[in-house]
Write a protein that binds this DNA or RNA. Structure first.
Lengths: 155, 155
DNA sequence: ACAAATAATTGACTTTATCAACGGTTAATG
DNA sequence: CATTAACCGTTGATAAAGTCAATTATTTGT
């Protein structure tokens, strides 16, 4: 008891000194929210969002991913990939090619227009990235990426 | 030119060697997706999700946040906070107290039951966190947190 | 005292996410 | 082989999350 707290002191340093400020999961969520928002607004000028950008990226560098691989990689339900691919295919940025090795599967390939658009979008993406990294000492950039890779791909 | 790629070699190392594998925004998104999923399933046993956990956490350590502060901190629309708070309040885990200093605002405070539940949930959260960090050398844990803080709070 | 700004809330609406079911194809089994 | 089981993409139904404008109660500035 002794609830002697004054009423104001929600005050100064604010919430980030609370337990959550040290919660990795929360930090990840918030960092992601900021990054995603920035990326989406920047990519909008190319008619893309982070999601469609990712799909285009993979199609564009010739990895020939199947939709299922994409779903797993992007952590999406396969049905969401369908919609994503539909959108990009209608805009003739990518193409579904039925995998000759397994005719159930579609392999995604970027058209020339797709590769061109990606090249442009990639610049925007890079700018956003640099913006986000503005507060991080450049020396640490690579280490941060490395650490994030460990979280993103724990194998 | 020279498109000599065989058809199979989507093969081995897979997609993570593509451009996206170095894309910070993507890595953040994927790491977050994994963390969020793990957190949600672990917190489910307490009837919480990452979101409600965060709200409870802030209410529980006496920061007396207002809903607006919460919205900004968690990067949510104020209307989403309403729903979140409704849920926790119905379960009598937190309470809205109209801020005496500004009677428009509600200040969130955890009940004793709320603090108890949070204490338990926090352990689950910690386990999840350690699980996620399993691939990261312990020496680097604090540095990772520090770097994420920079991304999450660029000020 | 009045106008403008702000906190929470509601409601309409769009976007994302989750899940089960289906047709076509391949892999595994007997 | 001939089935059976498993798998890929797709669809459709449903639920959850996110976005936005409008409203009420209160506060702030003038």
């Amino acid at each position: 008891m002794s609830p002697a707290e004054k009423t104001r002191p929600t005050g100064r340093g604010s919430l980030r000194d609370s337990v959550l400020g040290e919660d990795l999961i929360f930090l990840l969520a918030r960092a992601n929210a900021l990054a995603l928002a920035a990326a989406n607004t920047a990519l909008a000028q190319h008619g893309l969002k982070a999601r469609s950008y990712s799909v285009l990226a993979l199609a564009a560098d010739g990895v020939r991913p199947t939709q299922r691989e994409l779903a797993e990689f992007l952590r999406l339900d396969p049905s969401q990939v369908v919609a994503l691919v539909d959108g990009l295919e209608e805009r003739q940025l990518i193409e579904r090619q039925t995998d000759p090795a397994d005719r159930r599967a579609n392999v995604l390939v970027a058209t020339e227009a797709g590769r061109d658009l990606f090249a442009q979008a990639q610049e925007s993406a890079r700018d956003v990235e640099l913006g986000l990294l503005a507060t991080v000492p450049p020396k640490e950039h690579e280490r941060l990426a490395e650490l994030l890779r460990l979280l993103a791909f724990p194998d």
